[in-house]
């Protein structure tokens, strides 16, 4: 049996420290195991997170003004309402499958009745 065991790389640790989900969940589990068993790794993670916090604190975070937020919400809601109306309108009602089934069943019944009547 071929078992390939790959240790997490530096970038995987960085991703973990930044809170970015790993592509492979197994990598995250491996990192957690390493951190659980290694004090030095835990200390380094704390240092790494401190640096990342220092970097993040220098990036501005702007809060959307309420009036602009309301405008955005209005647009989104109008769009969704129009789209919902389109989805639920009779013109777009999709029951082709059911209609074909009912029509073919009706056709078969009529054919049987026709054949019975023809025999009589």
């Amino acid at each position: 049996m071929n078992i390939s065991l790959k240790l997490p790389e530096q970038d995987d640790f960085l991703r973990y420290a930044e809170g970015i989900p790993a592509k492979n969940p197994q990598v995250e589990k491996q990192i957690q195991k390493i951190l659980a068993s290694n004090t030095e790794a835990r200390q380094r993670l704390t240092e790494l997170r401190k640096d990342l916090y220092h970097i993040e604190s220098q990036i501005p975070q702007y809060v959307m003004p309420p009036e602009f937020g309301v405008e955005l919400t209005k647009i989104a809601q109008t769009w969704l309402q129009v789209r919902m109306r389109k989805e639920t309108s009779f013109r777009n009602f999709r029951w082709e499958k059911e209609l074909i089934f009912i029509l073919s069943l009706l056709g078969a019944i009529l054919l049987v009745i026709g054949l019975i009547l023809a025999k009589k």
Binding site: P8, Q10, L14, I34, N38, E40, A41, H54, I55, Q58
Partner: peptide, 20 residues
């Protein structure tokens, strides 16, 4: 970018070879 914002080299050395 990280180096500039941190004002020094950003060291991403979490794994030590002698840890394993």
């Amino acid at each position: 970018g990280r180096d500039v914002l941190l004002g020094r080299e950003f060291k991403n050395k979490l794994i030590l070879e002698d840890s394993f």
